Amino acid sequence: MKANRARWPIARMARLLGVSTSGFYAWLVREPSQQASSDALLLARIRTLHASSRGTSGAPRIHAQLAREGMHVGRKRVARLMRMAGLCGASRRRWPRTTRQRAGARRAPDLVRRHVQR
């Protein structure tokens, strides 16, 4: 509603969303909740740890680092904040699982005489 209030009347948006207009205006001046402010502080620390690892640490490693520092937060909370901030760890590359034939390589002789159609 806040983003679209220049385009649409607040009363119409409130009616369509099933909320009161007074509730919207009360929400505008209300301070952030304790969890929201705590999440902001935690996200700042997560960003610092993620940057110090050059973007390689994911949620499990950052959670472990926070636990070593004495911050007791849940791994899923760390993962949620990282996901919302667009932070992700680097994963190892998987080797190709298919075998490719070199260009110009000879075929192995068919010792079993299978008569395979190619």
Results as ranks from 00 to 15, higher is better:
residue 9 P to L: 05
residue 10 I to A: 14
residue 10 I to D: 11
residue 11 A to D: 15
residue 12 R to E: 15
residue 13 M to Q: 15
residue 13 M to E: 00
residue 16 L to E: 12
residue 18 G to R: 06
residue 21 T to D: 14
residue 21 T to A: 14
residue 22 S to L: 08
residue 22 S to V: 05
residue 23 G to F: 12
residue 23 G to D: 07
residue 23 G to K: 14
residue 24 F to A: 00
residue 25 Y to N: 07
residue 25 Y to M: 02
residue 25 Y to E: 02
residue 25 Y to P: 04
residue 26 A to E: 11
residue 27 W to L: 02
residue 28 L to Q: 15
residue 30 R to Y: 06
residue 30 R to L: 00
residue 31 E to T: 07
residue 34 Q to S: 15
residue 35 Q to N: 13
residue 35 Q to P: 02
residue 36 A to T: 05
residue 36 A to W: 02
residue 37 S to E: 13
residue 38 S to Q: 13
residue 39 D to A: 06
residue 40 A to F: 05
residue 43 L to E: 00
residue 45 R to L: 00
residue 46 I to K: 03
residue 48 T to D: 12
residue 48 T to S: 11
residue 49 L to K: 03
residue 49 L to C: 02
residue 50 H to G: 01
residue 51 A to G: 08
residue 51 A to D: 13
residue 51 A to T: 07
residue 52 S to G: 06
residue 53 S to P: 07
residue 53 S to W: 07
residue 54 R to S: 09
residue 55 G to N: 07
residue 55 G to Q: 08
residue 58 G to N: 04
residue 59 A to Y: 14
residue 60 P to G: 00
residue 61 R to W: 06
residue 61 R to C: 02
residue 62 I to S: 05
residue 62 I to W: 07
residue 62 I to Q: 01
residue 63 H to K: 06
residue 65 Q to V: 09
residue 65 Q to F: 11
residue 65 Q to G: 08
residue 66 L to Q: 06
residue 66 L to M: 09
residue 67 A to D: 12
residue 67 A to W: 12
residue 67 A to I: 01
residue 68 R to P: 03
residue 70 G to H: 12
residue 70 G to R: 07
residue 71 M to R: 13
residue 72 H to L: 15
residue 73 V to D: 00
residue 73 V to Q: 07
residue 75 R to S: 10
residue 75 R to A: 14
residue 76 K to T: 11
residue 76 K to P: 01
residue 77 R to Q: 00
residue 77 R to P: 01
residue 78 V to M: 09
residue 78 V to N: 05
residue 79 A to K: 11
residue 81 L to W: 03
residue 83 R to N: 09
residue 84 M to K: 14
residue 86 G to H: 08
residue 86 G to A: 08
residue 89 G to H: 06
residue 90 A to H: 12
residue 91 S to N: 11
residue 91 S to V: 15
residue 91 S to K: 13
residue 93 R to V: 05
residue 93 R to G: 13
residue 94 R to N: 11
residue 95 W to T: 07
residue 97 R to K: 13
residue 99 T to Q: 11
residue 100 R to A: 13
residue 102 R to C: 06
residue 102 R to I: 00
residue 104 G to K: 10
residue 105 A to F: 04
residue 105 A to Q: 13
residue 105 A to K: 12
